[in-house]
């Protein structure tokens, strides 16, 4: 009877121990979940305040958190450099067009000169008249492209020195 009673007690103790362990694990898990749940809204609020309410989830918070500090002061610089780059590109394109038009004009003028010298009739053919019209058009394009520059014009005039008048001595 003693042995069976001892075995019964041992089994009960073992079952109790198992239950206690399971309960402890559950409590630890619950505490971890609570900590995570409490921590998430606080973080999203703090990041939402600095980010304009764009923080969504932990991954996005990590990727968005350092951005405002770096991008906010550089926004103007980025826009300025973009505009400067655009103006430079447009001016480059304009210069290329001017050079290309001048090359065409020179080629047409040489061809026309040769044709007129060969014919030496005093009259112009249709082909020659077309070439003259093209030359006129190209010259107009060159003039217009040269006068209309993109962006702010660069001032090449030096600032005048202040005038100094001699003081009369009596």
């Amino acid at each position: 009877m003693h042995e069976t009673e001892r075995e019964f007690r041992t089994d009960r103790f073992h079952a109790l121990r198992l239950r206690l362990c399971a309960g402890l694990r559950g409590a630890v898990l619950l505490a971890m979940v609570c900590t995570l749940v409490c921590a998430l809204p606080g973080r999203s609020q703090s990041s939402g305040g600095s980010n304009g309410g764009q923080g969504q989830g932990q991954g996005s918070m990590h990727s968005h958190a350092p951005e405002p500090d770096l991008s906010t002061p550089a926004d103007g610089d980025v826009d300025l450099s973009m505009a400067e780059r655009r103006i430079r590109a447009l001016n480059n394109e304009r210069q290329k067009q001017i050079v290309a038009d001048t090359d065409k004009l020179l080629k047409l003028a040489r061809e026309l000169n040769e044709e007129v010298a060969k014919a030496n009739t005093g009259t112009l053919t249709m082909d020659e008249l077309h070439k003259i019209a093209d030359i006129e058009k190209l010259a107009r394009n060159v003039r217009q492209r040269m006068t209309e520059s993109v962006g702010q014009p660069q001032t090449t005039m030096p600032t005048p020195a202040p005038m100094v008048f001699p003081t009369p001595t009596h």
Partner: peptide, 24 residues
Amino acid sequence: ATDLKSEVDKTTRDTLSVTVVRKA
């Protein structure tokens, strides 16, 4: 036309050449 070409070759993208305008 040759004069215009030589004047255009002197200019850069930031230049506004009055000579080029006059010759053109």
